[in-house]
Design a binder for these strands. Structure first.
Lengths: 205, 205
DNA sequence: GTCTATAAATAGATAGAC
DNA sequence: GTCTATCTATTTATAGAC
């Protein structure tokens, strides 16, 4: 009974998890590069170096592959939140999150999913791991947002949900690729420019 | 020789143009609803009410259909720019453009194209009408941006190209659909919230 | 679990009659 | 130009041997 939660995984189970991790990493990269619709299961199999039929032994559908990649990203985000110094001001915590999000995108590791695809939405909302991670993240960010608004660091006239969505939207910001394609700015410059426009806006002060 | 530029179109030619306009309108709506990859040519044919083969008599490929829809949108944007009162302050002109962009999106008339699809990019960059309209728009917005920066209304430390891309990005802002799905805000409220976060940022002043 | 081979469905595009 | 019918390629997914 090594599959019990908390029990030490057997060697075989470790190999299985390592293989599935390799699959999810490949899916993650392909989702970032081409998006869900353009990514094919054949490409995933080729990238991992196994047969397509073997893929389907691990994940029952293309949607589940994408969901697993999203779970990985969400858990990475949640883990990052835990590394943020607790003594930072709430506003600085939020800026750190946005910087991290942009870095993931620039590293080619941010999956891009079509927001309207219903079968994909079903796979995501049906994934306990995904929903849980997303809720943890939203709760944490929500607390920081309210604290920042209470202290006057964030515009208190904006509904917190608007702030939250605006931060989430930095994770799929097309400005990044445009700026990168222009070739006029380094990645660090791009990060600071986007953080600036996000928090300070375009107006001068 | 009624196809000469400026000549009065014959009745037949008017019918042809009207039919193609109906096609492009349907494509525009489907592109806004489902995106390029998820939209099928069969759906377009069904929406217009003609056979798929007939579609291909008007447009040689799916990419050309999407390009025609984009040309329509770009020309609409360019025409809107011309309606903006010349005596407005540059900053107000830019805000008016963002409001218009958001309204188009909320009306379900903003095509969503995958930014990485190369065959689609080729069709767009190969369309004289598209490139011309895009350049006219960028030139106009660029002038307003520089004027707003010169007058101190816009943050002059931001490269104008960053401002331009940030404005363009409002055309595919996922915040809109999130807020709409939440059901807590009217369209007018959503517009003002997004305009506010775009120009004023999230920080308080 | 991994493989080869193949099924089943779908999509973009075309042939040819009218 | 419009239609029906079809082609061709691709894609998700599975069967069955090992």
């Amino acid at each position: 009974m090594n599959s019990v939660v908390g029990a030490k995984p057997s060697f075989k189970e470790q190999m299985l998890l390592a293989r599935e991790e390799a699959i999810v990493v490949a899916v993650n990269r392909l989702l970032a590069e081409k998006g869900f619709d353009a990514m094919t299961v054949d490409e995933v199999a080729a990238a991992v170096g196994i047969a397509k039929a073997s893929l389907y032994k691990h994940f029952p559908s293309k949607e589940d592959l994408a969901a697993a990649a999203m779970v990985r990203v969400m858990r990475g985000a949640r883990d990052f939140l835990d590394t943020i110094a607790p003594d930072l001001l709430p506003l600085e915590k939020l800026k750190a999150v946005v910087r991290w999000t942009i870095q993931v995108q620039l590293a080619g590791e941010m999956p891009s999913l079509p927001s309207q695809n219903s079968s994909l939405r079903a796979a995501l909302t049906g994934s306990r791991a995904y929903v849980d991670a997303l809720m943890e993240i939203s709760d944490c960010l929500g607390r920081w947002i309210e604290a920042a608004q209470a202290s006057g660091a964030l515009n208190a006239r904006l509904p917190p949900i608007v702030v939250l969505y605006t931060l989430y939207a930095r994770g799929c910001d097309p400005v990044l690729e445009f700026l990168r394609a222009g070739g006029q700015h380094s990645d660090d410059e791009i990060i600071e420019l986007v953080v600036s426009t996000c928090f300070d806006g375009l107006n001068s002060r």
